[in-house]
């Protein structure tokens, strides 16, 4: 008989063998790639199947958010100044990038909620649903990129050499969002409070982040812009796209590095939490 794979299940905390844990994490990640792709393909075909507007829903939320501010600004109700590119372009680029972050934030808990029936019944590499979620975020970003390109052409925003930083900046937005989202998974999958709170928190957060206005350097807004981890990501992504001087590059790099670190920790906590979550899923 050929060597059979052996699996051992004990109550021992898996953190007791951190090396084995990391090895298994990457082994499962690679084993789950094929499944992740299938799940992603399934989600894409299912995503907007029961809608009339279809892919419009990928850019409607950020579009409406930015149009609100474009209107308020044009009527002088709120006065936002200091943008080097036309305000509508500034606002739309900002909200589209912000949406990428929010997508990343919501992906882990959404993916688990969707996969509940599968999780409760079959043993498969748990990383697959995260990976599928990541693919989905990237896919939706690519759709929005079309709108982004349209905005840039319309307002004649021309990128410069710093465009090379755009892709890393978007990656940082996705990873940062997912890192926070994954840390919320253990509690968020047990208590519905978290998933209800995320959209509300996101609404506030967008106003505390230089998404619809340029980053300040003074006052409370200045402090928020400095200490809000998302602001260097958004600002750098937008500046790299619109050929502006990169005003927050060191902070961006720091946040990027910390995001990757937190993502690793979030991934670990996701693995540790999973059997406990499944035990309480029923089904």
């Amino acid at each position: 008989m050929p060597d059979l794979p052996i699996r051992v299940y004990t109550p021992e905390p898996i953190l007791g063998h951190p090396l084995r844990l990391v090895r298994e994490m990457f082994a499962d990640l690679s084993a789950g790639r094929e499944l992740a792709w299938r799940l992603f393909a399934r989600d894409v075909s299912a995503q907007y199947r029961e809608t009339l507007l279809g892919y419009m829903w990928a850019f409607l939320p950020p579009l409406v958010a930015s149009l609100t501010f474009v209107f308020l600004n044009s009527q002088g109700i709120v006065r936002i100044s200091g943008t080097t590119i036309p305000y509508p372009a500034f606002a739309m680029i900002g909200t589209l990038l912000w949406q990428v972050f929010v997508d990343g934030l919501q992906t882990p808990s959404d993916a688990i909620a969707r996969a509940k029936p599968m999780l409760a019944r079959i043993n498969f590499p748990r990383e697959a649903i995260l990976l599928a979620g990541l693919y989905m975020v990237v896919f939706n970003f690519l759709i929005r990129l079309l709108l982004l390109l349209g905005v840039m052409v319309w307002w004649r925003v021309v990128p410069g050499t710093s465009i090379v930083l755009f892709i890393p900046a978007v990656a940082a937005l996705i990873l940062g969002g997912m890192a926070i989202g994954m840390l919320l998974v253990p509690v968020g999958s047990l208590y519905g409070d978290i998933s209800r709170a995320i959209p509300i928190a996101a609404q506030f957060w967008i106003l505390l982040t230089p998404v619809l206005y340029p980053p300040r350097t003074t006052g409370l807004a200045g402090i928020l812009a400095t200490w809000n981890p998302v602001s260097p990501l958004i600002t750098t992504a937008r500046e790299s796209l619109t050929n502006q001087p990169l005003s927050m590059l060191p902070a961006f790099l720091a946040v990027f590095a910390i995001s990757v670190l937190i993502l690793g920790l979030g991934w670990m906590s996701y693995r540790i939490a999973m059997p406990h979550l499944i035990a309480r899923m029923g089904g």
């Binding site: 052996i6 699996r7 299940y9 004990t10 019944r121 406990h276 499944i278």
Partner: peptide, 15 residues
Amino acid sequence: NGLIKPDGGRIEMRG
């Protein structure tokens, strides 16, 4: 099937 962890004891599955 490895869906949930035991609180005590040990399970070994070969294959």
